[in-house]
């Protein structure tokens, strides 16, 4: 990469840091997924005498789980690019799903209409987050923490914390449908195609359009962006709205796949999204990284926990490991973006 040669010509001692920087940014999560696959395949074989990890059905599972996390994480990574943070995403998924389930099941509304309402609700909550952050100028961290509680509370109130089972058949295809169902069997889930779709669009927009470039400028330096005529507040606002819409989308797919809605739907998605984003190369401080990386980061994360489960690692230990991964990812971010001047 040209970036690597630039920094290293400026300062020879930076070779290692800049190599790490480029590696970790663009390829690390992909390399990581491959390494995990190898380790867990061997592990699975050694433990069971048979291969459970490296099977089509297991990978289908990994990809299904990744798809919802990754769709939500896309919103988080774009918010991170502008230098903000959204703590409410996971609970927003829960609340939007609960509202959707109640409307579909208890009220008996047309599922298609409910889907529209769910997206509207996502946009509205995102708009609230964006308004508080951009125009009232409350730190995003605090504003979205408030939203997180509000969403979770509303979700609990609506459902009395009781799961709502059996979603309408008409939305089943979203989370449980496959393309080429007849030709090659149930191999390529529609939700995975949806994930790929939103990421390809987002990668294109962020890297190839004015809107995308401005997002990076805002995250790189809000002041300089302002003095380049960019409406910084509008970008803050817009990215939160987009994240809200993606929460609705992710929530919808999740309720379809699980065929039920509980207040735990989407739990911890906001942090999984951060871990995925950072492993995927997005800078926590904003202004750097490719959004497509976040998709691989999320797949990496899900692969890792799938593998741990396969190897019979205690779920409580897995929580500990998740914390370790979060700290490791952020340490990586800090090392990667340490000022080199």
């Amino acid at each position: 990469m040209s970036k690597q040669t630039n920094t290293s010509t400026l300062d020879g001692r930076r070779n290692f840091a800049s190599t790490l920087s480029v590696m970790s940014k663009d390829y690390m999560s992909v390399v990581g997924i491959i390494l995990l696959a190898i380790i867990f395949s061997i592990g699975s074989y050694v433990k069971n005498g048979e291969q459970y990890f490296m099977t089509i059905s297991n990978w289908k599972n990994i990809m299904l789980q990744s798809s919802t996390v990754a769709i939500v994480a896309l919103g988080q990574s774009i918010i991170l690019l502008t230098g903000n943070f959204d703590l409410s995403l996971g609970r927003m998924v829960a609340m939007i799903s609960c509202v959707g389930a109640v409307l579909m099941k208890n009220v008996g509304m047309d599922p298609n209409l409910v889907i529209l309402i769910m997206f509207g609700l996502g946009a509205l909550i995102g708009a609230f987050n964006g308004f508080m952050t951009a125009y009232v100028r409350i730190p995003a961290f605090i504003a979205t923490l408030g939203t997180q509680y509000i969403c979770f509370g509303v979700a609990k109130l609506l459902t009395q914390a009781t799961p709502i089972p059996n979603m309408p058949e008409s939305i089943g295809w979203l989370g449980r449908g496959y393309i080429f169902d007849n030709a090659i069997g149930k191999v390529i889930p529609i939700s995975v195609i949806m994930m790929l779709g939103v990421y390809i669009i987002a990668q294109f927009v962020t890297s190839k359009t004015k809107t995308g470039r401005n997002i990076y400028a805002v995250g790189g330096s809000p002041e300089a962006a302002f003095f380049s005529g960019i409406n910084v507040k509008r970008y803050y606002f817009g990215t939160f709205v987009l994240a809200g819409l993606l929460c609705a989308f992710g929530g919808l797919i999740l309720m379809s796949r699980l065929n039920s809605v509980a207040i735990t739907n989407g739990q911890n998605y906001e942090f999984d999204a951060v871990i995925g984003s950072i492993i995927g190369g997005i800078a926590l401080a904003g202004g750097k990284g490719r959004v497509i990386g976040t998709m691989f980061g999320c797949i990496f994360l899900i692969t890792m926990f799938n593998g741990f489960s396969q190897l019979g690692v205690d779920p409580f230990v897995q929580d500990v490991l998740k914390g370790v991964v979060l700290v490791a990812a952020i340490t990586l971010d800090v090392v990667r973006n340490r000022k080199k001047s």
Partner: peptide
Amino acid sequence: LQGLVQIMSVKKNTTLVNLDRVS
């Protein structure tokens, strides 16, 4: 602070105010 996005390249800073011209 105000003139340039420090973590952006020379090229991207140059075109930032008038991206339409390179689009």
